[in-house]
Design a binder for these strands. Structure first.
Lengths: 402, 402
DNA sequence: TTCATTCGTCATGCTTACGAACAAATAGGT
DNA sequence: ACCTATTTGTTCGTAAGCATGACGAATGAA
């Protein structure tokens, strides 16, 4: 089978066949390896159609035979499964101190992960990304041509001009044509996403079948951020600013000039805010990590600091549940992922909200963002390969005439 | 043409034809009357396919010829348009003092509207609804069999058992099997929706082509509520509680016991909260209406009351924009729709948020809810008639394996 | 060994859509 | 008055896709 064949999209196929291919691939992705007969039952398509579709898919290299199914009554069935090596999706997390990467194959299996210490200057970034990509491809023995999509998770916002704005932790990066340079360095379709949104998607993906499709992820670290999933889709907002919660009027006077600059909530429960609170209470710690260490050692001031932080975070949970009513709120980030903090947030909740709400700590920790980036690539790969068709789910409303 | 034919759904048609019918109907709904040739260009389907589809649609009664198009170069074209009398959608707004109704035809034109003073007791409601339905059908000369869907907008939440909960303004209504009784009284498919959500949809619908598909509607009246549209769809939340903003920690101490009972925000800017504020400031007014009257007369205490209310509402806008980033926030309800209030909210905004945000007063006023209910019925009618097909827009993610 | 069951293929027929050719109708120019 | 370019809409032939039902193959259980 030639690589050219593998890369060939199913664009030319007519509408009906595309729909059939799509439902078959969806079943294979969700259920794993199966026979044609059970695919026919699962999709409602006739056995005949399934056979035709599988013929096309094996010729194209997306699907391969994988042994037989025997043991039950009746004839043994030929088992088909997605050829996991047919396409790969890359996720990158562009952090302040590390550059993380994850490579997933088309079936959703993570086949390689690695991280590099970030060089001080942003100018090195595209070259580093290229190196990381190659390391991951080599580790997975994946040919470079089969890398279909990469997603780069970044702090701040990627401007339409391809420059990274509002990312003070990555000095000097705003001057680069980051999008263009990464596109040529990675040599495939490249997408960009906010790191908190990516982390939200990562946690959602990790939860797997238990995932409710309505989900909120709060990141507390140097700054604060919120990622929202509605019906399994990221909610980005009309100016891509959904989840920019630093300015929420919680934990400080929102009308104070510094709140307008830095944001009341961020000032209150961001890393520097927590350290300042500790110092106001008489503590001497210089970092949040030191405060958590003191907390573990039984220090009263640290206890009070974290408890007050949790109190304000509980108001944040109240705010999020009041507005979008997620099934649960997951906390992550350097600070937000701390179980000591999350437990205290949960303890505050009954005092501000009658309805119980699940408040949990991130299960993926620092890997949430990079896995979410890989998930975005994976979703994009599937949809561009098997879903070129534009079928809007619902009709829009006609113009109102009254 | 028989009514039985009109009511016949297109269920039996195979997939491909359904898709064709759908795109044709969508174009006709959005663009109005056109010729078959231009439909062919607009949909990408061939001219003969369009002709076949139109034949089916005219036979079924959904579409009819409507004169000729001449004047340009070339042969005159036969013009087709949706037969507006083929189906009707009903919206009802179940308010504390009035029962409003709107009847729209299949093309989205409001063909009748009327309201009845609500009888004191909730038990009369189904009979009143039936009467209102008949009044509207008579006014529009629409045969009852062609009423396809009705949506009833209610305060509170409709429980899965069909009882209306959390609607203190409608005493005694919680005991009724409201859903069942309305279904048999209205004698068609009946849906239920929260009144604030319906109002949000109404305002969105009214904005028409200028509507951005990302939109928030805040209602301030006896209580406070929020309706959110994401991509033109209502955001309901995982327990149908999205937009229940009464408990937001704004304008009062969220840890106070009365905040847990009544909600801090609702206590602060709900009707009674505003009156109490006025009295605390030394005023004597008993109703919000009186306060607004005094404001117009130049009263300083009223000015201060409303300004403080606007200040807290501005924090609400900040909260909503921080979380979901809508294109604009529209205020409605008895109090929220007041331009004097909305103007002051807009004046407070620059003090808490750098990014400008459009804050506007409802254009539909008290009719927003009933129009939104009609819009829901209309959408449901279109989708059940022309979109029986289940085609998910995007593929889901496979299980994560790592 | 027989039988019920399941898998997969083959042959057939139906529905749908498309392309090309063509007839019909019109405006505008000569 | 006539011709031409343009647009509309139909007819006819062709191809694609799917379903149906019959059939052979392979298997476990009685």
């Amino acid at each position: 089978m030639h690589v050219a064949e593998v890369n060939h999209r199913l664009v030319a196929s007519p509408v009906l066949r595309q729909l059939s291919v799509r439902s078959v691939m969806e079943r294979l992705l969700l259920d794993g390896a199966t026979s044609r007969a059970s695919l026919s039952r699962a999709t409602g398509l006739s056995k005949q159609t399934i056979s035709e579709v599988m013929l096309v898919l094996t010729e194209r290299g997306w699907v391969k035979e994988s042994g037989m199914i025997s043991g039950g009554v009746g004839r043994t069935a030929v088992r088909y499964e997605i050829d996991a090596t047919a396409g790969f999706a890359l996720g990158l997390d562009l952090g302040a101190s590390t550059l993380r990467g994850v490579l997933a194959d088309i079936s959703g299996t993570v086949v390689a992960q690695h991280e590099l210490a970030a060089d001080g200057q942003g100018g090195q970034l595209p070259a580093q990304a290229k190196r990381l990509k190659q390391i991951l491809l080599d580790a997975a023995k994946a040919p470079a041509e089969r890398l279909q999509v990469a997603t780069v998770a970044t702090p701040g916002v990627m401007s339409p001009q391809g420059r990274l704005d509002l990312a003070p932790n990555l000095p000097g990066i705003g001057e680069l044509d980051l999008a263009g340079q990464l596109r040529s360095a990675l040599d495939c379709q490249v997408m960009f996403e906010n790191d908190v949104n990516a982390a939200a998607l990562g946690e959602y993906w990790e939860a797997g079948e238990n995932a409710d499709n309505h989900f909120a992820f709060v990141s507390i670290g140097t700054g604060v951020g919120l990622g929202i999933l509605v019906d399994g889709q990221l909610l980005r907002g009309s100016s891509l600013a959904a989840g920019e919660i630093g300015y929420l009027p919680l934990g400080g006077d929102p009308f104070a000039p510094e709140s307008l600059e830095q944001g009341a909530l961020e000032t209150s429960i961001g890393a520097t805010g927590i350290v300042q609170r500790h110092q106001r209470l008489g503590g001497t710690a210089q970092t949040v990590r030191a405060i958590f260490d003191a907390l573990e050692a039984g220090d009263r001031i640290a206890e009070e600091t974290i408890n007050e932080t949790a109190r304000i975070a509980a108001l944040l949970v109240l705010t999020v549940t009041s507005v979008i009513d997620p099934d649960r709120v997951v906390f992550g980030g350097n600070i937000g992922g701390r179980p000591e903090l999350v437990r205290r947030i949960g303890e505050w909740m009954p005092r501000v909200q009658k309805r119980p709400i699940r408040v949990e700590a991130s299960r993926l920790g620092p890997r949430a963002t990079v896995l979410g980036a890989a998930a975005m690539s994976l979703g994009q790969m599937h949809n561009s390969l098997f879903s070129t068709l534009e079928v809007p789910g619902r009709l829009g409303l006609p113009t109102l005439r009254q």
